[in-house]
């Protein structure tokens, strides 16, 4: 299936991607659909982009559903382990 469902969110950070160079990223697009590269029928896909830098600056990941959930738990765990005042 193509779920089409797409969630966009504004972010603020950096990502290392094409050409092994760092880039500022302002937007994340999250969707569950067919991957381009991962060996699974469907994956949780995240595109980190700065639209001003053009399509080729995208940093993309394609994760199986189980590993995406593990990643969510890991992110929440890492944030929870830090002093609250540092993670506002």
């Amino acid at each position: 299936m193509c779920t089409y469902a797409t969630i966009r969110t504004e972010i603020d950070g950096s990502a290392k991607g094409p050409g092994s160079s760092w880039t500022h990223v302002t937007d994340a697009t999250v969707y569950f659909d067919h991957p381009v590269h991962a060996a699974a029928e469907h994956t949780l896909n995240i595109d980190f982009v700065d639209p001003a830098r053009g399509p080729g600056s995208r940093v993309a990941v394609e994760l199986t559903a189980a590993s995406a959930r593990e990643l969510v738990r890991a992110i929440e765990g890492a944030l929870a382990s830090a002093p609250a005042e540092l993670t506002v």
Binding site: P51, G54, P55, G56, A60
Partner: peptide, 20 residues
């Protein structure tokens, strides 16, 4: 139009993010 000259996967990601 959304992604002139981009790789197909990057163009698709851009088109998706802009509403298709």
């Amino acid at each position: 139009r959304e992604a002139p000259g981009a790789a197909p996967d990057d163009a698709a990601a851009t088109a998706r993010a802009s509403g298709g």
